[in-house]
Amino acid sequence: MAVDKKDTRSGKAPKKESQPLIIAKTPAEKQRLKLERLMARELALSWSLPLLSDREPRSPRRRGSSSAGAGSGEFHVYRHLRRREYQRQDFLERISEKQKLDEKYIEKVNENQKAAEERTAKRRKKREKLKQKMLAKKAKMESQKEAGSEEKSSSSASEAEEREDDAEVPSFIMGKR
């Protein structure tokens, strides 16, 4: 039985069969689909034509040949991409070189600190040795002074030795400036 354009019971137009949902794969396709729907709706409203939504949107024709060849505009895009990639690699190389130099510098500073600590320890040991030697001589001199009050000749000899010892020992060890 053929159905008129209007259903006699409800007074509405019969439902059209639903079209499969078309999903745009690229932004260009999405824009084209929106534009076609708008244009179809505009035409339908202005000319009272049925909506063109039952038609399948046209897809761009694909060439039968290979798409490996690029147009003249693609060369510039490739060139810019290549330049940016080279800049990125150069930047990474410079950073790695800087890190290596920093590590070498830190290693050299540590070596210098160790060497300075060793020299300081060696000199400290030498100063302590001289100080102990001076204290021992001083103690010896005091003991000789006590015993030397009896003998003046031995004290004059010890004074001569003390002068010689003072000449040998630097003044900063003795606390003199």
Rank of each mutant, 00 (worst) to 15 (best):
F75I: 02
K137I: 14
S158Q: 08
K25R: 15
K152H: 05
A116I: 15
G73K: 14
G69N: 12
S158A: 05
K133W: 11
S48C: 11
S10G: 03
K176A: 08
E93Q: 07
E93L: 04
K34V: 06
M39S: 03
R163S: 11
G73C: 07
E164T: 01
Q132T: 05
E97R: 03
E56I: 10
A139E: 13
E146K: 01
K122L: 07
Y78K: 08
P170M: 09
A157E: 13
R83K: 04
D165Y: 13
K16D: 09
K100F: 10
F172G: 03
L92F: 13
L51V: 00
M39V: 06
V169Y: 10
S46K: 02
D166Y: 14
A139P: 10
L21H: 11
E164W: 02
A147S: 07
P60D: 15
K108Q: 14
S158L: 15
S48I: 06
S18V: 09
M1I: 11
A147R: 13
P50N: 05
R83M: 04
P20Y: 11
G175Y: 09
A13I: 01
V77E: 12
L52W: 06
D165H: 09
E103H: 03
S158W: 14
R62A: 15
E146Q: 05
K129Q: 03
A116T: 13
S72G: 05
Q31V: 02
H80A: 08
R63Q: 04
S149Q: 13
E36T: 00
R79Y: 10
L43V: 07
L81Y: 12
R88Q: 14
R79C: 04
R119E: 01
E159S: 00
K125R: 14
V3H: 10
H76R: 03
A13P: 00
V169C: 13
E118G: 01
K5D: 15
L52I: 01
P57K: 02
E151N: 14
E36I: 10
G11W: 04
D54M: 04
S143V: 11
Q31G: 03
S48A: 11
S10P: 00
I106Q: 09
S149K: 10
P60A: 15
L130I: 08
K125F: 13
S156A: 13
D4W: 06
R82L: 13
I22Y: 15
K104F: 14
D90S: 04
R62M: 12
L38Y: 06
